[in-house]
Amino acid sequence: MPSADSESPTKPVEDSASRVDDDIAVGFDLAFQRRWWRFEFAVWTVFTTLVVLAMFGCFGRGHFAKARTAAHDGSLDVQYDRIERFGSPSVVTVTFGPRAIHGGKAQLWVSESLMNALGNQRVVPQPVEAILGDGGILYTFAATKPPATAEFALQPRAVGGANLQLRVPDSETVNARIFVMP
């Protein structure tokens, strides 16, 4: 006798799961589970390594990430993070040497990557003048005598490698390779 729901497909009820001792139906598979446990162990090993590396700052914000580079002629000394993190604030500190300051001002040319890849938020102290050109910006700070320090507050906005170049006019260019983590 056809019933109203004769159209809907059915399937006999059977235990598809494997049985333990032919008694109880559980999808129990110790071989699979052992493989999974091995995988689990491997993942935790990798994770622990990552965290230990992170403690030392291999992924930014730590000891290994800190870097320092200077011009051989002593005009410029730059402290920066060689590993930055996307969107996370950090500071580049530029110290001018005696050669960089004359006539009551210090000049510093910075490549454009400071703005676009590294997302420069502000310059401290406020430069007297900023002139665009030559693929970068030429900042002029009022200065008396060394030690003199300027800071750039960064907030990187592009993941990947960035090349930051800094130079006091007519001196050697200082190159900082920076990698931005996601």
Binding site: F47, M181, P182
Partner: peptide, 21 residues
């Protein structure tokens, strides 16, 4: 803190996971 990077999130979660383990 002020670190909204993916790196930071992954590291924090992993660290908490390891503590729990």
């Amino acid at each position: 803190e002020n670190d909204r990077s993916e790196t930071n999130a992954v590291l924090t979660v992993i660290t908490v996971g390891i503590c729990h383990r």
